[in-house]
């Protein structure tokens, strides 16, 4: 019961903040709403007993990435409106198409999960001898998901090298 209340409150908050992000006229405010949004998502993770994920959510998204967003927003002069495109309704069409795609995806997930047997509500049996989901996550990353993990890290390395190359060309 308490969990349900927490979930729905958070869900409303997250959605409301999401709307605030896109509707606020001031960019800095909208970035801040985004931070709040991330914090609410982190709390949601805590409710789901995924403390590690929650903490990482705060550390990486709220504490790291959005700070950089804020940096850019503050430094870049946003007085000028973005250039108007030839087709004034381009954005509306694009938005409609994208939201349609998301809706389809969600519908697909719902239908797919109804088609299968309902998953057991209990979490997957923990790996023997390990308590807490941090260790579990670590084990999974370094055993079952080793290759995706390494691929992701190589991807990040490539991105880093790319960024350095781009930055160096200027000077």
């Amino acid at each position: 019961m308490a969990e349900a209340i927490a979930f729905y409150t958070l869900a409303v908050l997250i959605l409301g903040l999401g709307v605030a992000v896109v509707t606020t006229p001031k960019t800095v405010h909208s970035v801040l709403f985004l931070v709040l949004n991330f914090l609410c998502v982190a709390i949601l993770y805590v409710v789901l007993r995924a403390e590690f994920l929650a903490v990482i959510q705060v550390l990486v998204y709220a504490g790291g990435i959005v700070v950089l967003y804020l940096f850019v927003v503050m430094l870049v002069n946003l007085k000028r409106a973005p250039e108007a495109h030839e087709d004034p309704r381009r954005l509306a069409r694009l938005g409609l198409g994208l939201s349609g795609a998301v809706l389809l995806e969600l519908a697909g997930i719902v239908v797919y999960s109804y088609g299968r047997a309902a998953p057991s509500s209990a979490p997957a049996a923990p790996v023997e001898g390990i308590v807490g989901n941090t260790e579990e996550l670590g084990w999974l990353l370094y055993t079952d998901y080793l290759i995706p993990f390494e691929v992701a890290s190589v991807l990040l390395l490539v991105a880093m090298v790319g960024a350095i190359v781009l930055a160096r060309r200027e000077s």
Partner: peptide
């Protein structure tokens, strides 16, 4: 069980 990470992540909010 993620105490140290919690400290790191919460202090990172202080920069705002």
């Amino acid at each position: 069980n993620v105490g140290l990470l919690f400290i790191i992540s919460v202090t990172s909010i202080g920069v705002y």
